[in-house]
Design a protein around this nucleic acid. Structure first.
Lengths: 201, 201
DNA sequence: CACAAAACATACTAGTTAGTATCTTTTTTA
DNA sequence: TAAAAAAGATACTAACTAGTATGTTTTGTG
């Protein structure tokens, strides 16, 4: 195989397995050894492509994690149509479609935020970046809702954005403790109520 | 010193230091060695009182963590006075009074939920218990607000309870990423808005 | 095709981990 | 006060950790 292609492929396999293991078992308890066993490669290969576990962690956050949040939570905000439909689709309906795996292991980003958000400035910064772009995309959507005349102008867009994100990340942690979806249904009712009051009659 | 008193005292010192280190550095990366160095005792003392790290973890959750949540988030819900004042005091004003330490390291319970909520059934269960009693206390308060005629009857009390808890835990994680309180202020505005719409005019 | 460089493998290091075995010290009790 | 039991200290084990040193294999290039 071509060398640069092979290199990229190997790095991608390492990132994918690292992401999966971080999600399933946490960052700190996932060792380079475990990751490399999962990739069926060896430690030599790892340290040829990455200089440290920290470098891999940052790569997982800034590439894998960021793109996932973009795809799942940010891009759908740009869809055409009613602002409330868009919000309901991303924050409310979507949570119902999660696989059992995703419900049991929570939000990969939220897990990292709570496990290593206060551990290293570099992680803190990389994770904050994702939250900030999510927040900005939400603010943009809410502002457009105000212009369209469907959302009250007196409402703070950033406050709504932060509150929505907080509740979403919060429930994804709490859901891990339960073995059914009742708690999710309650979150959904609570959110539906919240969205309703943003709406101009 | 009296033997049973000495034993209780030692166990309490271990629990206190363990809780502090779990909060500052996480559960999995806090070793028995580190805890016992902090207590100025030795490993022999630890394994005389506890049979494993898991047993200590469960003890920290069911005694220390539970009592903290009770004291800070559940008992204040029983205070006399306006339901909305009580909710604002626990979910809104209180967050402003947090120390820098508490802002930087987040909610000890939420940290554990996200780090080990999917790690061991025993931890899952112990943490769920705390959330459940918090939720029940909130439901009780909201129901009483309905009876007093200050909260709309059509609103689901459990939905509001879960949504409030989710947002609170969510923001305590996200706050860790920032080095100022702007994001907290936005959460507070978002929450104030949410509480307002529960209110019967 | 020879040689260089990249990709990967093997074998190690020093430090850390949960837990155990066995010791000494302190407290209780007969 | 002597024996017993609890509290605590010391010294270990085997497994695991991030990272390194040095080997072999694969790929690119003159």
């Amino acid at each position: 195989m071509q060398q640069d292609l092979k290199s990229e492929l190997t790095k991608q396999v390492i990132i994918d397995e690292a992401f999966r293991l971080f999600h399933e078992n946490g960052f700190k308890t996932t060792s380079i050894d475990k990751i490399m066993i999962a990739t069926k490669l060896t430690k030599g290969a790892f340290y040829h492509h990455y200089k440290s576990k920290k470098e891999l962690g940052l790569e997982v956050i800034s590439s894998k994690l960021q793109s996932r949040v973009h795809q799942a939570m940010i891009e759908p905000l740009g869809e055409l149509g009613d602002v409330f439909n868009v919000l309901e689709n991303t924050f409310l309906h979507r949570i119902k479609t999660f696989s059992l795996y995703d419900k049991q292991h929570g939000c990969p980003m939220n897990n990292l935020i709570n496990e290593i958000g206060d551990f290293e400035i570099a992680y803190q910064f990389a994770l904050k970046n994702i939250i900030e772009s999510w927040k900005l995309a939400l603010i943009k959507l809410i502002e457009s809702g105000k212009k369209e005349g469907v959302i009250h102008e007196y409402i703070s867009s950033s406050a709504v954005a932060v509150f929505l994100i907080s509740a979403f990340e919060g429930i994804r942690g709490i859901r891990k403790l339960y073995d059914d979806d009742l708690i999710l249904d309650e979150y959904i009712s609570g959110l539906a109520l919240y969205l309703k009051q943003l709406k101009k009659v």
